[in-house]
């Protein structure tokens, strides 16, 4: 009884609060988190139904309002064709989000898998995989994407493939390091001593414990991928489209930066806001998924 009593004392105020298990329900609501969720929802809305959110069609050009600064009629101003920048940002979100999210997803999965296999199995497998990754790493990301995109031909999917290839080495390296660190923890030996199979240990102990840095890196990588995608478009191996994505908007507006700052500032802000929001959500997710920090996360 004494010990039980002491346990309660030790746990202090947590005792008063029944412990919730499972679920991702936030305990108290955080302004930053709400804002991030709202921003992501808005971008998702833009990607799904741009017609409802954009004030003008993206291709509408008005020759009497070229390069107008932000005004009530055009909150983000107009570009050198007289297109409304707000509408362009709204319409551009679909391809940008797709390129950013899909290429990170593919790169993260492939890189994570390579890193996990080589870290967990080790030995010759590790040596072969890691040398391959090193080779991939020596080629600059844009150059690699350029080569792949021009070899595959212009299409959105090829562009995603090209961009994701460059993100693989980073994920593979990170995941390998994580896996190596986790697989030597005492609790892994403890599971082995109980008789859990090698795969079982990986699946139940190593993987869940090694994922969180990967999540963080993925959320940070989305912005980079959008920019790489736009770089490809800029270099002319991207997709030829009627509606430019954010990256293209940036590169198109860059030459007018001194005279019309709004053309590339607003797409840039959109990218920054998206990356920031995904990061906030990613951080929160990581904390929620870690029982040690569940008490602090909100």
């Amino acid at each position: 009884m004494r010990e039980r009593l002491n346990l309660n004392i030790m746990l202090g105020k947590r005792e008063l609060r029944p412990y919730r298990t499972g679920g991702l329900r936030p305990r108290s609501y955080n302004v930053l988190l709400i804002a991030a969720a709202a921003a992501i929802a808005w971008f998702a809305g833009c990607a799904i139904a741009p017609d409802w959110l954009a004030p003008y069609p993206p291709t509408e050009m008005s020759s009497d309002s070229l390069m107008q600064p932000p005004s009530w009629a055009h909150p983000f101003g107009t570009d050198y064709f007289g297109r409304d920048v707000l509408s362009l940002v709204v319409y551009g979100s679909r391809d940008s989000l797709f390129i950013g999210v899909a290429s990170i997803l593919i790169g993260g999965l492939a890189g994570g898998a390579i890193g996990a296999i080589s870290g967990y199995i080790g030995g010759l497998t590790d040596a072969v995989f890691m040398r391959a990754v090193d080779v991939l790493m020596t080629i600059p990301g844009v150059l690699l994407a350029l080569a792949v995109a021009s070899a595959l031909g212009p299409s959105l999917f090829n562009m995603v493939a090209a961009v994701s290839l460059g993100t693989i080495p980073g994920f593979a390296r990170l995941m390998r390091g994580q896996t190596l660190g986790i697989k030597n923890r005492p609790y892994i030996v403890a599971s082995r001593s109980v008789g859990v199979t090698r795969f079982g240990i990986y699946w139940k102990h190593v993987l869940p414990n090694s994922l969180s840095p990967l999540v963080v890196m993925a959320t940070l990588g989305i912005g980079g991928s959008i920019l790489t995608g736009s770089g490809l478009s800029f270099l002319g191996v991207g997709v030829l489209k009627e509606i430019p994505d954010w990256g293209e908007l940036l590169s198109q507006g860059r030459s007018y930066l001194t005279v019309a700052w709004w053309i590339c500032t607003f797409p840039g802000l959109a990218i920054a806001l998206l990356v920031l929001s995904v990061n906030v959500i990613g951080d929160w997710l990581r904390d929620r998924l870690d029982p040690r920090r569940r008490g602090e996360a909100n």
């Binding site: 005492p186 609790y187 001593s193 008789g195 869940p208 414990n209």
Partner: peptide, 28 residues
């Protein structure tokens, strides 16, 4: 079976007590 030296490191921090004690039962 084995009892480990480090009571902090030898338990998977992501598992609750029920799951930890249940693991050997699941296996065998």
């Amino acid at each position: 079976q084995m009892i480990f030296q480090d009571p902090y490191g030898s338990l998977d921090p992501r598992w609750n007590v029920g799951e930890l004690v249940g693991e050997p039962l699941d296996v065998h």
